[in-house]
């Protein structure tokens, strides 16, 4: 009994590894790339969902924390071995694994520093402040010459594969799912529901806002680090305001506060433009820029038809009651 969860965990990891192996040997690199980007988007969406959906605090600076993770991990694997040749092991898979985790912690610390003063604000004000911090982080990268400034940072070892991205997506899912099903999750949800009542029931609201923000930033940093080691090249423009908005769209589309909704939102927002590209191509003649018109139209229609997002506050298994017991295995959908 005691080890059941570890066995299931191992099985899922094995399944992800097998899938990754099959995909990378059988599918064309473009398709694999789309799938991997999907996984990174899912991590971003799930992590932002904790702040925007569960805690009900509207943050618009997620790309900034992703950038912190990306730059920090890339600096560790790319710049450190150059400066100190004895640290060349950092370019090996193990070193990169460490760098990814360090990137996550760096982003978490950044989240703490940003969250502490700004989470006193609410609603629109918080959105503006987080947007501002996101931009500040980007501008810092733009002006620090050690990490390439506007030229970006090339030569990052390209070691994050399908397996590592979906491994982290699974870990993120499991972590956030279990967090939200615990007393800490209830405390975070109560902030969204009613701050005054939560405070009167012994919840230190300001503390849990920061907790949610830090955890969210941590996983954004992980996603950024994976992204950096997938692309092999990062520049400040990658982590601009548009990317923050993309993540917000994923969360809103999937349903605020729904973890599985964030997964679906992540898949749709990263997959739909690519699908539209293919559809337009097969229809012949239509320029591929049309997809950037059709995609927003689909979003608008969806929001008009279902303003709470695809799943609302619910999880996907709430719609299939008999499915409820198998929830742990859904992370690599």
């Amino acid at each position: 009994m005691k080890y059941t969860q570890w066995i299931i965990f191992g099985l899922v990891i094995g399944a992800i590894w097998t899938l990754g192996f099959l995909f990378e040997t059988n599918l064309n690199p473009y398709v694999v790339r789309v799938i991997v980007n999907c996984g990174i988007a899912m991590i971003l969406a799930m992590s932002l969902n904790l702040v925007n959906g569960c805690a009900g605090q509207f943050s618009l600076g997620h790309a900034g924390f992703m950038g912190v993770g990306a730059y920090l991990s890339a600096a560790i694997t790319t710049l450190l071995p150059v400066a100190f040749p004895q640290l060349s092991f950092l370019r090996e898979p193990l070193g990169i694994g460490i760098a990814v985790v360090v990137g996550g912690f760096g982003a978490g610390i950044a989240g703490y520093l940003v969250g502490l003063p700004s989470l006193r604000l609410r609603g629109d004000y918080l959105a503006i402040v987080t947007l501002g911090f996101g931009e500040i982080i980007r501008i810092i990268f733009l002006n620090v010459d050690a990490v390439g400034g506007p030229r970006g940072l090339p030569g990052i070892p390209r070691e994050s594969t399908f397996f590592w991205v979906y491994f982290w997506a699974f870990v993120t899912f499991l972590f956030l799912y279990r967090l939200m099903k615990s007393t800490y999750g209830r405390a975070i949800l109560s902030i969204r529901e009613n701050e005054i009542a939560a405070e009167s029931m012994g919840i230190k609201v300001s503390h849990y806002k920061v907790v949610a923000f830090v955890i969210s930033s941590f996983f954004a940093g992980i996603a950024g680090a994976l992204f950096a080691h997938y692309q092999g090249f990062i520049d400040p423009a990658t982590f601009n305001f548009n990317r923050s908005v993309d993540v917000v769209i994923m969360v809103v589309l999937g349903g605020m506060g729904s973890l599985s909704g964030a997964l679906i939102g992540g898949i749709i927002v990263s997959l739909l433009p690519e699908l539209l590209r293919m559809i337009l191509f097969t229809m012949g003649g239509l320029p591929d820029t049309y997809r950037m018109v059709i995609f927003p139209l689909i979003l608008i229609v969806l929001m008009l038809v279902r303003p709470v997002g695809l799943l609302g506050h619910k999880e996907i298994w709430d719609f299939f009651p008999s499915f409820k017991k198998k929830k742990g295995v859904k992370a690599h959908g």
Binding site: T183, Y184, R186, A187, L189, S190, R192, E193, N194, I196, A197, A198, M201, G202, I203, G257, H313
Partner: peptide, 18 residues
């Protein structure tokens, strides 16, 4: 001032948090 979207049980469980 209840936590409207949470279940009745979760509303009570919240009070054990501290």
């Amino acid at each position: 001032r209840l936590m409207g979207d949470l279940s009745v049980l979760d509303n009570v469980l919240l009070s054990y948090h501290f």
